[in-house]
Every structure is written in C-alpha cells, then in structure tokens.
Design a protein around this nucleic acid. Structure first.
Lengths: 196, 196
DNA sequence: CCCTCCTTTAGCACCTGCTCATAATATCTG
DNA sequence: CAGATATTATGAGCAGGTGCTAAAGGAGGG
C-alpha cells in the first residue's frame, strides 16, 4: 500500500499546476523527475489539457469571471433566514483577505458580511443601511470560518434595528448594530432620512 | 493623401482584436481581405504579438486582476497623506458595486474606503480597527466619484480617533468614526508630536 | 514610355508545444 | 518465472506562428 508512486505523482502534478498553470510538459517532467511522455500520460488520465488550452481557458474565463469576487466571496453564504427576525451566514477568510503585514483579516470583510446579512434579514424589495456601529473584538486570520448571526431587536416603521454577531469557533470576533431603512413602500427618491 | 489604405487597415486591425483578441492571423486576413503575410507584417509594425502571446498575457493579467479587485478597486486610491494627521482618497463606484434592485452602491464599499483610509493615516507598521461608527446619508449610484477625507481628531496612547467623511460632488454621502489601535510601539520619525 | 518606390504576396526553413500511435523497456506481483 | 502494469522512446503530423528572401503589382515622376 504505497499509494502507488503514480497516484502520488498525480497529486503533485495537480498541485504544481495549481500554483503555476503556465508550465510546459517539459518543465513538469523535470520537476517530477520523470519523462515527458509520462507527464503527457498523466495529463491525459487526469484530463488536464495542454498548456495552450489551459492558458486559453484562463484568458477566456477571465473576461467574464473576474467580477464574481465582489459578491459571493466578500459577503459569505446564507445558511438560515427568518425574514424580519433573524439570519445566519458563514464566510471563510481566504489568504487574499488578510493584510500582508500582520496576516490579520481586513476589517471590512466582517463589516460586509454583517451588513449584507442585516440587509438580507429585512423583508423588503430594497433596503439601505442608515447607521452602523461596529466593534472588532479579536483579530481574525486566514482560514478562519466565520459565522454571523443577525437578529432584529426593534422595529419602528421602516427602520429596523439589527444586531449582528460574528463568531469564530465560539469566540466572538466582531459585533455590529445597524439601522436598516426599508424602501419598500416609500417610493424612490430621498428615502434616506437618517437624521443625524 | 488617401490615408493610405494601409493606415486604415491598421486601425481596423486594432479594432478587430479589441473585441476579439482570440483571432488567428488567418481569420484576420480573411476579415480584412488581404493575405496572411500582410497581416503578419501589420502586426509586426503595430507591435501586436501573436495569438498565443496575446492569450497568455491576458491569462497572466487575469491572475493579478483577481487580486487587484479586493484591494485597489474596493478601497480607492490614496491622493494625499499626512501621517498621523489626515488623508484623502478617491473611489469611483463601478456598476459592479451596486445592488441590482436599486442601483445603489453597496454600503460596505464606503465603509471599506473609509476604514482603509483611516488605517493608512495611522503611522504604524500594523494597526487594527477597534470600533467603528458609520452613518449613510445619501445613496450613491454607479459612476459616482467619491472623495474621502480622514482626520485624526484625538490620540490616546496607541489609540487613534479618526473621523472620515465621504463626499460626492460636495455632498456628504457618508461619515464614519473609527478607533484604530496601533500595534506598533510608537511610530518613529513622526511628523507630529501629539500628546501621548 | 520606362523607371523607381512602396505595398502586397509568396515561398521556404524553422520553432514550440503539443497529439496520436506504436513499440520497447522497467518494475512489481503472485 | 510469467504476466501485468508503469514508464520511456521514437517517429509522424499539426497549429500558429517567426524570419528571411524574393517576386509581383500598382502609381507617380521624369
């Protein structure tokens, strides 16, 4: 049960291409100490296309895909939702989300997560954030799986008072209070009163 | 002075590649009703690389772009900075940053812009946001060019109290108060003495 | 009218990074 | 040891070019 060198090589191959997709078979062969033919065979087994096709796919995908980030990746995924009452979402901190210097996640990801969840909770076709009040309690590092819970604590007319807590492994890392203004009835235009 | 058909063809060539970069010389030749050799010659004059290189450049650029989005595109560009005192940055709201339903910019872009600016102002190798207090005053739509001004209003030890105002055409659309905690001891070479 | 200059084409050798097929070795396994 | 499996070698062919040389085609000037 030596996990057949082949299988291991396949893993390595995939890993290599992961962090450098622009690699010719020749380079891969050298890296893995096998012949070019072996690499070709491996690629064909693993259904990995040749360099040019890989490159091309990336270039094509890039034209459309680039923008996927600013919705899903930033705001997390909704797990549970009770309109006008509460909601739960998760977000995994990726290495791109942290500051190089400290390795700590940029604060606005937590804000975005909380704010988006708060907006989702409000049962309105459109809603805007009026005020926000946030507190960062503990730094968060890459890889952390955050869970946010939002709760409507008060409602006055078109204004929803919502609290959001974000936890990482049962430790609270962030909390926020929002006042969300529903634009549902109030037609477009100056819906934002938000007294100062 | 017939603007030499050649020059016109060059323009057309560039235009063609603009909206379909994945085009072989052969296809281009057919499109422009000239021979492949002419296309090659034109490309070489215009310093347009061959298909494979073009594709590759795009793919490579895409890799960086993904990263560029969550830093630059979200947080704006720094225009002016006086460490420990003030800073100014701009951010243009792109169509991707708005909510489909209302066309209003997602609130966390303003938050991210303000927060990042506040952090930049603090003259420390590392700093974290402690608390934030934000208020959205007016909705912002795509195309808006936002200008944020940050000012340190108070400093107590490692805590900086910073106010940030974001304006769009002289109208205040957002304001925030942050307490930023510096993780440095005391920044060296500070321009401002500031009581400690 | 011919001659010259510029543009456009053509032809050929070569390159990279493959595919596809076929065959010859290694290497392990029962 | 045979047999299977894994690896390597070999050769032909393809796409989409580069680079170079050379020839054909006007269009205008003298």
């Amino acid at each position: 049960m030596q996990a057949s060198q082949k299988t291991m090589r396949h893993q390595e191959l995939k890993a290599l291409l992961q962090n450098n997709p622009f690699c010719t078979d020749e380079q891969l062969a050298e890296e893995l100490h096998v012949s070019v033919q072996t690499i070709r065979l491996d690629r064909s087994v693993l259904k990995i296309p040749e360099l040019r096709v890989r490159t091309r796919n990336m270039a094509e995908a890039a034209q459309n895909k680039v923008r996927a980030i600013d919705s899903k990746d930033i705001v997390g995924e909704l797990l549970d939702l009770e309109l006008n009452k509460s909601g739960i979402s998760t977000l995994t901190i990726s290495p791109q989300m942290v500051l190089d210097k400290t390795g700590v996640a940029r604060g606005f990801y937590m804000f975005a997560m909380a704010n988006t969840l708060a907006l989702a909770v409000v049962d309105a076709r459109a809603a805007l954030t009026g005020v926000g009040n946030v507190k960062y309690k503990t730094p968060v590092y890459a890889g952390a799986v955050l869970v946010a819970k939002a709760e409507v604590v008060k409602r006055r007319g078109d204004k929803f008072f919502i609290w959001v807590f974000i936890k990482h492994k049962n430790e609270e890392v962030f909390r926020a209070k929002f006042i969300i203004v529903s634009l549902d009835k109030v037609a477009e235009g100056t819906a934002m009163s938000s007294s100062s």
